[in-house]
Design a binder for these strands. Structure first.
Lengths: 136, 136
DNA sequence: AGCCTACATTGGACATTGTCCAAGTCAAGA
DNA sequence: TCTTGACTTGGACAATGTCCAATGTAGGCT
């Protein structure tokens, strides 16, 4: 954790109480919070932190590659602090549980040139859906 | 197309001018519109159609399985009329445009047994992201 | 240690997307 | 053609996110 803050500071990130709190809220979570959930938890530690600051900080962490932005439904984006291991998601269609999985091969390689339509493609994400053992 | 309307009518769908226009806008598109884009195009044909009606109609088409709802970013959901052919999506990370694409191989096959954790997996969706020609 | 100043934070207004509802309208069966 | 229940409308409201001018402050400099 302090590794993270240290790394960011070396990249010229000014280390403020607000940013520290946001980073602490994200750290080590097994659930992915929405921005407002992060804000709610940050407020518990630093009562006057503004919503805009949380949004700003999350965007910065995403831009710096420290956190992933995940949008599972059409609603609020969620923030995944586990950005350093490339992984895909396995989702239970009954209960919504999400597991991280590691497929074979490079998903990007599966799209032939003729199907790229002039896009400069940089990323491919795969979501597997099925019924988990608990819901069977 | 009239097939679609016919099928819906047989399911008890009341066939109104508004619904017809929404279905016509969606028909045969390989680029997927947001609800507001559908509304904008519907207005060209039926000037007084309400935004709420477009939202209602799209939700009904999704519930009836005639259209897929795709939410790739945290922004507006998009509607995919091509619900009867398996395909994947190519998304512009700038403007959010979505195209249908057909990758090589079966995405389901990329997840080894050891990574399935007892799930009965039935589906895999792949989302390719990049910058489209218009946004370059 | 104290001062500067560029960068960060704040709070509120605004934007986008979507939902809800009461009142009016109309498709389609009798 | 008449009736009726389903559909549409327009506007209010909700959820999420963005922007901005005023204020505060971290960290470098002396």
């Amino acid at each position: 954790m302090s590794d993270l803050l240290e790394r960011l500071r070396e990249q010229g990130w000014r280390l403020t109480a607000q940013r520290r709190v946001v980073a602490e809220v994200l750290n080590g979570q097994h659930v992915h919070y929405t921005a407002d959930e992060v804000h709610a938890r940050a407020v518990e530690r630093l009562p006057e932190i503004a919503r805009a600051t949380v949004y700003n900080t999350l965007s910065e962490l995403v831009a710096l590659g420290e956190v992933l932005e995940v949008s599972t439904d059409g609603r609020a984006k969620r923030y995944d602090p586990n950005a350093h291991h490339s992984h895909q998601h396995l989702v239970c269609s009954r209960c919504g549980t999400i597991r991280d999985v590691h497929p074979l091969g490079d998903p990007l390689a599966t799209l032939p040139e003729s199907e790229r339509f002039g896009f400069a493609i940089s990323e491919a994400t795969v979501t597997y859906r099925g019924v988990c053992p608990n819901c069977t």
